[in-house]
Simulated scan of single mutants.
Amino acid sequence: MSGSRTWDVVVIGAGMVGAACAHHAAAAGLRVAVVDRGPVACGTTGAGEGNLLVSDKEPGPELDLAMLSLRLWHGLAEELGRDVVEFEAKGGLVVASSPDELLGLKRLMAGQLDCGVGAEEVPAKQLRELEPHLAPGLVGGVLYPPDAQVQPALAAAHLLRGSGALTLFTGTEVTGVDLGADGAVRGVRTARAGTLACGAVVNAAGTWGGHIAELAGSSLPVLPRRGFVLVTEPLPRLVRHKVYAADYVADVASGSAELQSSAVVEGTAAGPVLIGASRERVGFDRTLAVPVLRRLAAQAVALFPVLAGVRTLRAYRGFRPYLPDRLPAIGRDPRVPGLYHACGHEGAGIGLAPATGLILAQLLCGERPELDITAFDPGRFAPHDAREAR
């Protein structure tokens, strides 16, 4: 199929962030096309655990974005059907194995409470009331009732399906972005669907966000950060919350390129237990790293000894879209009029997607964004940052 058709906005990327951008833009009355070189949720979204977290975020702009997004998620869950997208407001439990770790958790919680996050300290003797199968010897923790989970691929698919004024092009690679004589966006070129004429482009291409920026004559230093998840056989509900060790918070905040892993364990509505989380910058190397999987399994068993005899059915991996300051790029590109960015959310894209989509739709409609997005300004990176990041 070829030719030229016209939309108000073309969203590049049919993952959770792209789906949320398209959903809110269509709800605002814009004509929207979504383009992805693969199927829906074929990238980071399809390899995610579906976490909707405030617990792992320090006070600041990302926490503000997460709190808005979590409120929006509750509305989306009702709209799409909680069972349909496997939405569970199950809460998160962060546990400490030493007094120093517990002190760090308390400090983080104090700042979060000042921002309006719901959280409460859990003494050591009460941990196993919340999670009966936790290992003994933990010194305490913090419970975050707001933390939740969805099945990310289902959520993205149903969000796109439910957006009426939207055209979806899957299996359609973007080969270029057309600019007018004034340097502004005029359309998106594709190998399969021809040229999609539009007045605006939203770059929601995840780990490929830097490539899309280059096609449009701009730059964004997005890098892939590989992670693995283990999936167990279906089980009775052994793990009630999302449970993770205190060092996971430090891993999330770290910009290290080296391998980092910490125990993250959670049950699912379907039965299997998901075990993570690892992070490392190895480019787009998809090698199945067995030592990493063994390390994740050992950390999970240390946290939940009952898992020692459980079978692992599979492991999957994906790439988190990482930016050097560990904040997403959300907003207008300063160099290319009509180009907008919604990428670089690293491991928080599922949770942050609804607020990102709402903000992008507001910008596209010329409205004031719901939040101050100064910290997410794509222009905060100098053009040479993208070259140095490779």
Rank of each mutant, 00 (worst) to 15 (best):
L63C: 04
E79I: 11
V54F: 03
V54A: 11
E49V: 13
V85H: 05
W73N: 00
E78T: 14
L53W: 10
N51G: 14
E88N: 00
M67C: 03
A77V: 05
L72I: 00
L80W: 01
G81W: 02
V40Q: 12
A47F: 12
G46I: 08
P39H: 12
G38T: 04
T45L: 13
L63P: 01
P61T: 07
R82A: 15
G43R: 06
R37K: 14
L72C: 05
E79H: 13
F87K: 00
R71Y: 03
V54Y: 00
T44A: 15
S55K: 03
V85Y: 09
G46Y: 13
L70K: 00
G43S: 03
L76I: 10
T45H: 13
G50I: 09
L52K: 03
K57E: 02
V85R: 03
M67N: 03
G81N: 02
V40W: 11
E86K: 12
L70W: 04
D83I: 06
P39K: 08
R82C: 14
P59M: 05
D56E: 12
L65M: 10
E78V: 13
L68I: 02
L65Y: 04
L68Y: 01
F87C: 04
D56G: 02
E58C: 06
G75L: 08
L76N: 00
V54G: 03
L52W: 07
L72R: 01
N51D: 08
L70H: 04
L63W: 05
A77S: 00
C42M: 09
P39V: 11
D64A: 14
D64K: 09
K57L: 12
G50F: 09
G91L: 06
R82E: 15
T44S: 15
E78P: 03
A77Y: 01
G50N: 10
E88G: 00
E78N: 10
L65W: 08
E49Y: 02
G48V: 07
D83E: 15
L65N: 02
A41K: 13
L72N: 02
L53S: 00
R71N: 08
E62M: 09
L68M: 04
G43F: 05
L53E: 01
V85A: 05
E78L: 10
T45E: 11
W73M: 01
E58W: 11
L76Y: 08
T44F: 10
L53C: 03
R71C: 07
D56Y: 06
H74G: 07
L72T: 02
R71D: 14
L70E: 07
D36F: 12
T45P: 09
P61G: 07
G48L: 10
L76S: 01
G75E: 09
A66P: 03
